[in-house]
Each structure stands twice: as structure tokens, then as C-alpha cells.
Design a protein around this nucleic acid. Structure first.
Lengths: 197, 197, 197, 197
DNA sequence: GATGAATGAGTCTTCATTCAT
DNA sequence: GATGAATGAAGACTCATTCAT
């Protein structure tokens, strides 16, 4: 452990506390305690409570985007990419419950944040999806009447709602793989039965 | 009946105020002012601030469910039902911006109470979707390997994210009909190009 | 007592508390206690702690100016006016110890206040003195080479320092009348012995 | 001797910072920065923040007293002494704006300690004035009914208020010499026109 | 001696809620 | 039922001071 990185300690503590109580019901004193630092120490690393929330989002989502992009790069088939995207997204949620809850739940309470800020990093994430669609369309694999701008939101929304279900229910009815497979299949093939020959 | 229903006046005022500032940044005094009543009057109709939020959810979502169910009842084909569901959902969002924003953003709180509460009415809404799927499967129209429990969340999530986009961006790039058609088509037929003849 | 004027109660309490501990060492809770109101009540009447200080100055000095002007009006001889001014000034200090201390001591700590604000009311007070001088000069009673702008400060300063002495020492070595007579005589006749004929 | 006397560096920095922001609004960190030392270093030279203020007063006023006494010693005539005292006092203020502001404004605090402390050095300064008066009275130059204890305060107060005017207004309407001459003349000869021939 | 990161006590201010009228 | 003045608990944030290096 590198000379106890206080910044990171505080961020991780805040993720736990925010996930537990929600942003507005979390007290700085609580985060400080969880991070094993004094209240005032937090203000050596962050400007204010809200700044911690922003930092969580910014730093953590950055890691996620990097990971997903890297993974996408090694896959060719856009159909498989879509499936893998779903799989990774849901896996990350499962592995980072608290973080997922903060992003899912707490960041949405701050409309200021959502309206002004979220777009930058978040748009980047969504655009990974639309890029896949565009690639597939260029290859003739996806229908050309699919609007990538709508698709990216629909696909993300589907995964996101599934995640929320997990995050909030704390009991997982379906496995990550099942959910990823089902959802990607919905979007790839639809649910209408192939009427056969 | 003009005797100004205070309860309703307060609820409507709260929807506006919550949508504007978020739940935690909204003050009772602000709601009272917006509703043209005294601060204390609010406590004759609601137990506390949080109770107003719950009431908004309960009453308003109830109206929506009723409206959607009614509409679904007059449609036969599950494929069309899905499309209409999307269309109605998105239309309601468009017509009730403030309410949509409150539900979208504020009700995502993680308070224990919310976690449990949300499910009741919300589950009812989601189940409209799974019922459609089950009906379609029973009729052999939808694939039998589609898991309704996952589908309902995926479909709702897709619509919900689309709504959030509208609610937050305040500029609508796509029409309700375009979005409803696209999204329902994604889920019905998928996006993979139908090969061959 | 008119329906317990909270505003006045708070102002009077603040004068006592500020005089006792100084502005920066006074706590809102202390003023509230002294005024027999809740902490929050203070904020129904004042914007913040500093606002109380300003209000004290503004309201109380206003009363003083009115009283002094009224008194000056009924005197003809500028020499007597000067004496009476000294007498009233010192009497007021004696009768309003706490207020005098706040104005003397606490208001001087806030340079922002002193630089920007003080001038308005304070200048009005000083100008009562320069008016007396000008009147005396017009009547040929006072030397014409006396600069009223310097005199008003010198005369006020002399009284003010005498007041400070009382306020801070809490033991009065000289009576108001003695001090007023001495000081006004200094300024009227000087201290150089009349060499006589 | 260039080994940067930290004590002096800190005192001078504090004078600037206190003059700028006032004692209570000045931060140790600010003084440290201005003095180019670490925060903690200040505590190697001073017990606490307040101690710096006291030190400023004690050391700087000591220098002033020495300078004034020295000057007085070389003058015979008490009338001239008075004029010179005024001149030196006002000159010092003009040459040491920041210090003057600190002494003027900050040392007027009402803390118990200050009330008592101030007297020691300050009394010494005031007594230079009363000594002049007593000398003049002994020589028959000043009226014997002049009370030196009142005179010293009146004379000092007059100069002090004039100084405050300069310190606060930052624009000087009158020159040091004009002010010194006017004020000393007020006190020596009064402002009443010499009647007769 | 010098540093500056860390501490945590201290306080102003907010605002949901109450209750006398 | 309606009012809105009053309440007071709660908490974010500051900053003088300490102390391990």
C-alpha cells in the first residue's frame, strides 16, 4: 500500500457510504470515519461534499470506459460485440455493487449534475454502442433503418434497468450471462418467432 | 367543485418544485408558496415532506397504469400492444414533463423505504409488459425462450432511458412516434438484417 | 411591552453580548439565549451575524444624531454649542455603556464596515461639528484660519478617546461635566496661559 | 545577518496581512505564505495567533515611543514640543500605513487581555504628552487649570482620529504639516478669535 | 530548526415541523 | 381548517494548532 493514498481511501469510503445512505443522507463525518481520517482531512482532497460525488463518477467511469473499449477492440463481429458489451456491463455492476448503486441512484438525484456534467463521459460510453451499430450497418449485418442514436439509448437503458433491479433488490434472480444473452438476443433478433420456411 | 382541492394543489405544486430543484433541494416553503397555501397547511394534508413524494408517485403512477391498461385491453395483437405501450409511455412523458422528471430522477433514491415501496406500483406497471409477452408466447407469436422477467425490464429500461434523454436534454431530437416505432421494432424483430429471400 | 418586539429584543441582546465578548467571539446561540429566542428566530429578523452589527450601528446612531441635532438647534452661541456637544456625547456614552463599546470597539474591527459603510451616518455626525465651526466663523467668533474639516475630526477624536478610556477602564476618574468642560475649553481657548495685559 | 530573521519576517508579514483583512479574518496560512515560511514555523516563534498581534503592538510601539522621546528631548519649548509631537505622530502613521491600521483597528478589540495590556505601553506614550503639559504648567506657559490626564487623551484622540481618517480613506486631503499645525494650534490657542486690538 | 499534512473542535446557518391564534 | 412565526436539531465546512518526518 503506497503511503496510504488518502484520496483513494476517501473515494472508496464515500462510495460505500453514498451507496448505503444516499448522497443527501450521508454525512461527511461518516465518510471520514469510514476512511479513517479526520473530517477536515477530506477537505484537503476535495472542495466539498458534492465534489466527492463528481470525482467518484469521473474517475470510476473512466476506468470502465477504458476497460470496455479495450475489450471491444479485440472482437470483430458486431453481433458478438453487442453481446460482450452487455456481459461486461452487467459484470461490472455485479462486481462493483456500491459503485453501481452510486452511479445508478445517487447521481440521478442531482439534476444539475445530470444536465450539465454527465454528458461528457456518459456520452462517450453510449457512443461505444452506436459505433458498434454503425459498423454493423456498414458491413450489412444490421438493418440500415436502425437509428444508432435511438439504439444506443435503448440498449443501454435495457442493461441499466436490469442493473438497477439487481442493485436495488440485492437478490439476483438471473445470472449475468443469462441476462446478457437474453438482452443481446432481444436486440439482435427480436422476440418474434421465426415463422420458419 | 372549484373549492380548490388543496391536496391536489399541493401535489401539483410539489411536482413542479421537485422537478425544478430535486427533492432534497426543494423547500416546503417553496411548495407552499407555489400552491398558494401556508407552510403549515401542507401538514394538514401530508405527514411530512417525503410523504408528498410518495403520494406523487402513488397517485400519478396509478393514473398512468389505469390509462395504459385500458388501452392495452382494446388491442389484440401482442406485437401491436408492444408498440402502443411504447407510444403511450413516451407520450405520457412528453405530456407530463415535470412529473416524468420527478419519477425519473427523484424516485431513484436509495432510501430503504423506496427500495421496497417502489416495487408495488412499479411492478404492476412492468407486469403489463410481461403479460403481453406471455400472451404472445401462448399464441406462438413470440419465441418461447424469451424470459418475460428479463424482457419487461429491458423493454421498460429502453423506454425509460429514452425518456430520460428527453427530460434532461429539453430538446427532442426524435419524435415520440419515431422512437416508439424504432424501439418496438428492435424488440420485435431485432436489428440483424434479414438475410436472403 | 408591544407584543414583544423580537427585533428590538435581539438588537438589545446583541449589544450586550457584543460588548461583553466582542463581535468575533460572540456566538449566535449566545445572543439568542440572551434574547430569549431560538437560534433560528434570529434569522427571521437578520440575514446573518454581521447584519446584526450593522443594524445596531444604523439604528442606534440614528437616535443619537437626532438627539444631538435637536439639542444644538436650541442653542445660539457656537461656543456653547461646542460645550454642549461634548457634554451630550459623553453623557450618551456614559448612559449607554454597552452600545458605546460596540460602536467604539467592535465596529472598528470590521474594516469593510468602516471603509464602506461607516461614512454615511458617521459623516453626518461629524458634520454637526463642522457646521458649528462654520457658523462661528461666519459670526466672527471663531478664527477664519481654522479648517472645519480638520477641526471636526480633532474634536470628535478628543471626545472619542475620552469615551474609550471610560468604556475600557470601567472606572471613571473624571465626571462627564469636568471632561466636557476641559475639552471644550481646550478647543475654544487653547491651553496657553493668557499673558494678560 | 542576512540569515533572514524569521521572527521579523513573520511580524512584518502579519502586519501586512492583518492590515489587509483584519485580525479575525486573517489566516495563519496566509501569514506563513506572505512570510515565505511553513505554517508550523510560525509556532516556533509565537505561541499562537493572538501572540503575533501582541508582539506587533509591543515591538513596534516600542520603536515609536523611543523615537518620539528622543525627539522631544531635543526641544525646549513645550509649545513646540506639542507641535512636533503631532507632526511626528502623523508622519509615522503616513510612513507605516499597515502598522497604523493594525494598531488603529485591530488593537481596539475588547478582549479582557487587551483591555489591560494596552495600558502598559500605551500609557507610556500618552504620558509623553502629559509630561509636556506639566512642564509647560511648571514654566507658567500653560494654564494651571488644564488637567493633564484629560489633555493627553484629548490631544492623542485628536491625532488618532485624524490618522484613522487617513488610514481608512486612503486619500489624503490634508498634508501632515497642515494637520499637525492646525491641531496643535487648536490645543495651544483655541479657535476663538482674539478679540480686541 | 523547518515542514506541511493531518486533526477535530467549534459555529453559523438552514429548514422541516410544530402550535398558538 | 388555515396560518406563519417560532423552534432547534443537524451538519458542512473552517482553520488554529500539532507533530511525525
Amino acid at each position: 500500500m503506497k503511503i496510504a493514498d488518502k484520496h483513494e481511501k476517501i473515494v472508496q469510503a464515500a462510495i460505500r457510504v453514498f451507496a448505503q445512505n444516499g448522497f443527501y443522507n450521508s454525512k461527511i463525518a461518516e465518510i471520514a470515519k469510514e476512511a479513517n481520517v479526520a473530517d477536515g482531512t477530506i477537505y484537503l482532497y476535495f472542495n466539498n461534499k458534492y465534489d466527492i460525488l463528481i470525482t467518484i463518477f469521473e474517475e470510476e467511469i473512466g476506468k470502465i470506459i477504458a476497460k470496455v473499449k479495450q475489450e471491444m477492440a479485440r472482437i470483430e463481429d458486431p453481433r458478438e460485440k453487442l453481446f460482450r458489451f452487455a456481459q461486461i456491463h452487467l459484470s461490472l455492476v455485479e462486481e462493483n455493487r456500491d459503485l453501481a448503486e452510486v452511479i445508478q441512484v445517487e447521481l440521478r438525484q442531482s439534476s444539475k449534475f445530470m444536465k450539465e456534467y454527465r454528458n461528457k463521459k456518459f456520452a462517450e460510453y453510449l457512443n461505444i454502442i452506436s459505433q458498434i451499430v454503425k459498423q454493423g450497418q456498414a458491413q450489412g449485418i444490421f438493418r440500415s433503418d436502425v437509428m444508432p442514436g435511438i439504439f444506443k439509448r435503448a440498449f443501454f437503458g435495457a442493461l441499466d434497468e436490469m442493473s438497477r433491479f439487481w442493485v436495488l433488490s440485492s437478490k439476483k434472480k438471473y445470472s449475468v450471462n443469462t441476462a446478457a444473452r437474453q438482452i443481446s438476443k432481444f436486440f439482435l433478433e427480436g422476440i418474434v418467432a421465426k415463422e420458419d420456411a
